[in-house]
Design a protein around this nucleic acid. Structure first.
Length: 374
DNA sequence: GATTCGTGGTA
DNA sequence: TTACCAAGAAT
């Protein structure tokens, strides 16, 4: 059960803070990770890494980071790039607003700062996609400025260190206060990086390696033998499930129809196969025929089932029921999307698709062009 | 201040 | 299979 704190939550004493700083920096010299962006001094490259690393593990980011810098080696090349090319490079990484914001922010830096990445906190925070943690990460890593951070790693470390008596989401003020008090004024660059390494390699969510932790002797969670109890969890919201009918619509030239989603919201700016939510009392073919009429204003004949895909997003789940369909009549209208195109199977990989749709494309490649009756 | 944003790994 | 969570920000 819940180990309740024996005393009210307080900041560690200054002498303790200094001891913690020294121990962490010493540990980092010996055990810090070697990462490609750590040898960079170009703020643009550090910025790219910080955005990619939002809610995303280092292992996932590495290959994306390399490919991105090949395509957009400088801030100016990014600013001048086509958004579709930007999204294509981001394909599969998730949270696509990050890519759209990077593109917009690069253009903002060109317009407002003559292409020079700003060094003032206020100016950095005014760029889209950069909040307090990312700003601190960039300014400490690129310019060695003593600005604190508070990412998932740091929250977990601090929650254990102090046995924080409430979930991090409800203790933002204390956690920032602690991070501010903690950051090393002499070497904020290494200190912030060390903090994240400690969380990623020692103070891990499951099975933390307390016996190798430089903060063991000051950690209240360790002393009470409750490291994995912390941080306290919020009660997770229930995630609804949606059943979706999806159409792969073929025309008489052997092309298929794809649409580009609106720039705002889920999967914004990405391409997809059209479809929509199954209504009560409706069959999947009925759903698909209706949705295509409503969204694209064309008449189709729903054919055979192609594939069923279960996919979990952060706050809901979907089952995509995909059917091959035959175009019948009407001119496609972009009613609930921003663009529509007829493309061949070979052309599909030029367009950025969400992960679940890539599985549809793979199924199409495996199976080839269907023989649709009619 | 609570929701809305992806995807992959792991137990 | 399900649940949790990872270098968070915007609305």
């Amino acid at each position: 059960m819940s180990p309740s704190p024996q005393t009210p939550w307080t900041l560690p004493e200054p002498a303790v803070l200094e001891s913690l700083r020294a121990a962490l920096l010493h540990w980092y010299d010996d055990a810090g990770r070697v990462l490609p962006w750590r040898k960079e001094q170009d703020p643009y490259r550090i910025w790219i890494s910080e955005i990619m690393l939002q809610q995303t593990q280092v292992k996932t980011v590495l290959s994306y980071y390399d490919r991105w810098l090949q395509a957009f080696p400088t801030l100016e090349t990014l600013a001048q790039a086509d958004l579709q090319q930007v999204l294509k490079l981001w394909e599969g990484l998730g949270y696509y607003s990050r890519a759209r914001n990077l593109h917009r922010a690069a253009q903002q830096v060109m317009a407002e700062h003559q292409g020079i990445f700003p060094q003032q906190l206020e100016q950095v925070l005014s760029l889209p996609g950069i909040g307090r943690t990312t700003a601190g990460g960039i300014l400490s890593a690129a310019f060695n400025q003593p600005i604190s951070i508070l990412d998932g790693n740091v929250k977990r470390i601090f929650a254990r260190l102090t046995t924080l008596p409430k979930p991090p989401g409800k203790a933002q003020k204390q956690l920032w206060q602690l991070s501010d008090a903690m950051v090393d004024r002499e070497n904020p660059r290494d200190f912030n990086q060390a903090l994240m390494d400690l969380g990623a390699t020692i103070c891990t969510p499951r099975a933390p390696k307390c016996d190798r932790c430089p903060w063991m002797s000051h950690c209240l969670a360790y002393q009470t033998r409750t490291p994995t109890y912390w941080p306290m969890r919020e009660t997770p919201p229930v995630r609804p499930h949606k059943t979706i009918g999806v159409a792969v619509i073929w025309n008489h030239q052997g092309q298929l129809l794809i649409d580009r989603r609106l720039d705002k919201g889920l999967l914004g700016g990405l391409w997809e196969f059209p479809g929509g939510k199954l209504e009560p009392g409706e069959t999947l073919p009925e759903c698909i025929k209706r949705e295509i009429q409503e969204e694209l204003a064309i008449d189709i004949e729903v054919g055979d089932h192609l594939i069923t895909i279960d996919h979990a997003y952060t706050h809901f789940r979907v089952t995509l029921n995909v059917y091959n369909c035959r175009y019948c009549s009407g001119t496609p209208q972009a009613i609930e999307c921003q663009e529509i195109r007829w493309v061949t199977l070979e052309e599909l990989d030029q367009f950025p698709f969400p992960k679940a749709n890539l599985k549809i494309i793979q199924a199409l490649r495996d199976r080839g062009v269907p023989q649709l009756g009619g």
